[in-house]
Design a protein around this nucleic acid. Structure first.
Lengths: 181, 181
DNA sequence: GAAGCGCTATGACTCGTGTCATAGCGCGGT
DNA sequence: ACCGCGCTATGACACGAGTCATAGCGCTTC
């Protein structure tokens, strides 16, 4: 079971990575299998629900990792810095192809209620963590501030990808620091 | 040529609408043709470059329309209000399916340099218009402020879609008003 | 050591896509 | 009246996707 769990994890990471780069629809299961070093049959076995189940789990996994990064931060400013640093590194050493798998799902999965709910759940988790940090500083309307932070980072990733630069992300980071002070 | 130009326009609007809802990859040319009330052959005729050419033109058209909305505004605050109002209405009367075709393209078209450039061009146009408005008010670092505005609105659309609510967009609008004051 | 089973590998099938070629229509000009 | 041409309609084709069934492997357990 140990090896199996490892395969499953690898598939999910590969799926999240490829989804973040090419988008959900453009990411084929054959591609995920090859990237993860497993066969196509393994995917069917570990995810009986097919692609939808895999995509949902991948997004939840990636979302939880990011949520943990937020929670591990001492205050909002450092949380924003951590997230931006991670994405900046991912952008730079992927030739500006990497972005956020959750955002990719949110942009495409309008027809599948389960996947929509999965993306919404991740965003809600992030918002919850951020709200905790924000209201500890006494800022007014922490929910609005958290929404602004999540939205602007997600949007900045889109800008960075197409203009092949990390500038928008840095602009957003600086802007958020000022807005949340 | 008058009817032809009308068909072409209808196709582009349909393409932009469907792309904004389902994403670029998930939008089939048959679907676009049906939505626009034309046949599939017409698409091939008007867009010899195939789907890529059509998507690029659709995004540029939608982008220019939004850019005009920005330029028609007296100051940044009203520009943001106008854009947010438009997207809010689009979200509400499309059952939270509509979003931004440019953002959809930016999220998916990582492999096609031409389409990436098209999305980047639209974002750059928006930023240029916003910078004009912002620096007229003497705000420091207008480019950073414009990036924050574009990114947060694009991101807010993702949030609104998945949680089926216009709240994130309103939070972003309020936050931008404060940040740009 | 042999059976049982979780896991993996591979092929076949269906469906929908983008693309192209060809045929049909309608309205201009001469 | 005829032809020419921009535009439209329809079918065929190749290709890749997701899904499923079946066969093969490896490790645990008795």
């Amino acid at each position: 079971m140990s090896r199996a769990n490892d395969s499953r994890q690898r598939m999910l990471i590969s799926a999240a990575t490829l989804m973040a780069q090419r988008g959900v629809g453009a990411t084929g299961l054959r591609e995920v299998a090859e990237h993860a070093g497993v066969s196509r049959g393994s995917i069917s076995h570990h995810f009986p629900g097919g692609k939808a189940e895999m995509v949902g789990d991948a997004v939840r996994l990636a979302g939880s990792a990011a949520a943990a990064t937020i929670s591990d931060s001492k205050d909002v400013a450092s949380a924003i810095d951590s997230i931006c640093d991670i994405y900046r590194a991912a952008l730079e050493h992927s030739d500006f192809r990497a972005a956020c798998p959750v955002g990719a799902l949110a942009a495409e999965a309008q027809d599948d209620p389960d996947l929509t709910a999965a993306a919404a759940g991740v965003f809600e988790e992030w918002r919850g963590r951020l709200v905790e940090l924000i209201q500890a500083e006494g800022t007014a309307d922490p929910v609005a501030a958290a929404d602004l932070a999540i939205a602007s980072v997600e949007g900045a990733l889109l800008l960075c990808r197409v203009q092949r630069s990390v500038e928008p992300l840095e602009h957003v980071r600086d802007g958020l620091h000022r807005a949340l002070a």
